[in-house]
Amino acid sequence: MKLALLSDIHSNRQALDACMEHARAQGAQRFAWLGDLVGYGADPGYVVQQAMALVADGHCVIGGNHDALAVHPPQPGDKAASSVAAHGAGWTHEHLTPHERAFLAARPLVAEVGGVLLVHASADAPERWRYVDNEAVAEQCLDAATQRPGIRHVFCGHVHQQTLYYRGTGRGLMRFAPQPGVAIPVAPRRQWVATIGSVGQPRDGDPRAMYALLDTEAWLLRFERVPYDHAAAAAAIRATGAMPDYFAQRLEVGR
């Protein structure tokens, strides 16, 4: 099975369409979205509608912190109201239908597909939204995941960068920076954690969208980068008249 993994779409219609088209051209048979469907971008309804169609067809969509914020945006005076993640949450909430918000609210925080664990943040405490951005947190994430029967591998989003952590001959995890489009052997006997990057808000200085493709028969993993019309996505954000301009600037510079 070829499993396409997408995360942190952030209401970016242009990036989502480009990644889904690319994944299908690569022979993807199943799709898993790892949360943060909305937030930051201009097309939350479109993205949620695509997710609803995927779930209806038997694919997997889990939830992220921005999805939770869109369902219950912080109110003035709330501690979270001043966070970057909260900016635009109210606008996103208003531009989703009650049915779309209910769909987001119903998303699980963890799922298992094809023998791997999927989680937006860290598997040891998914609801705390911890970033798997170093070897220590990756090890805690992996240790929690592998307590589940049959699970040896974890895919995460949230970080907006593409990284593979694997358990070598020692006790700790080792960090590996993948090259886009280059298949990596990921033997099922070895334990590893991968952060698959962001479809709609890359933050490594490269504006191309990110996703990953796992072949569970050959056990090969490819981290992909996909060009898309990020200028159109940035223009759509500015056209809302409600989002901070730096949300658009992020798409233009990939940071």
Rank of each mutant, 00 (worst) to 15 (best):
I237G: 04
H153G: 04
P149R: 09
E135A: 15
A18R: 01
G150V: 05
R208S: 14
H153V: 00
A125V: 09
G115W: 10
V137M: 10
N12L: 02
K2S: 13
G114R: 01
L6P: 13
G114D: 15
L109A: 14
R190H: 04
I9Y: 01
R130V: 15
R13D: 12
T169N: 06
A28N: 09
V47M: 09
R208V: 13
C19N: 01
D8H: 09
T216Q: 12
L220T: 15
A102I: 08
G168Q: 06
R250W: 00
V132Y: 02
T163G: 00
L251H: 08
P73V: 14
Q191F: 12
Q50N: 12
M210Q: 15
E252Y: 01
V61T: 06
G115S: 11
M174E: 13
P227I: 09
V61D: 07
S83N: 05
P74K: 12
G35Y: 09
P202A: 06
D143T: 14
R203K: 13
S122F: 02
K2D: 14
V253Y: 01
P244V: 10
P108G: 12
T216F: 01
G172S: 12
S11R: 01
V38L: 02
D206M: 05
A218Y: 05
A42Y: 04
V226W: 09
Q161I: 14
A218V: 14
S83T: 15
G170F: 02
L173K: 07
R225D: 13
A81N: 07
Y211S: 04
D67P: 02
G150N: 04
G114F: 02
L213P: 14
A102H: 12
D143K: 08
P202V: 05
A70H: 07
G168S: 08
A232D: 03
A25V: 02
H59R: 04
R152V: 04
G181F: 12
A136M: 12
R175G: 03
E100H: 14
A15T: 08
D8S: 10
I9P: 03
I62L: 14
L214A: 08
V47F: 11
L164D: 05
V253N: 12
L3Q: 05
A145R: 00
A32P: 06
T92G: 00
Q26V: 01
G241I: 10
D67W: 08
A56S: 15
F155Q: 02
Q162D: 04
Q161A: 11
W219R: 06
T169G: 09
V110P: 00
H158L: 03
L164F: 08
M210K: 00
H87R: 15
N134R: 14
H95P: 01
G241M: 09
D8R: 02
F176A: 04
Q14M: 12
S11F: 05
G241K: 03
L117G: 00
S83M: 10
R255K: 12
M174V: 11
V186T: 10
G241R: 05
P73L: 13
L142A: 09
G64S: 09
H22W: 06
E94M: 00
A51P: 06
W91A: 06
A187Q: 09
S198W: 09
V71D: 00
V116L: 06
V253E: 10
Q191H: 15
H95I: 08
G41D: 07
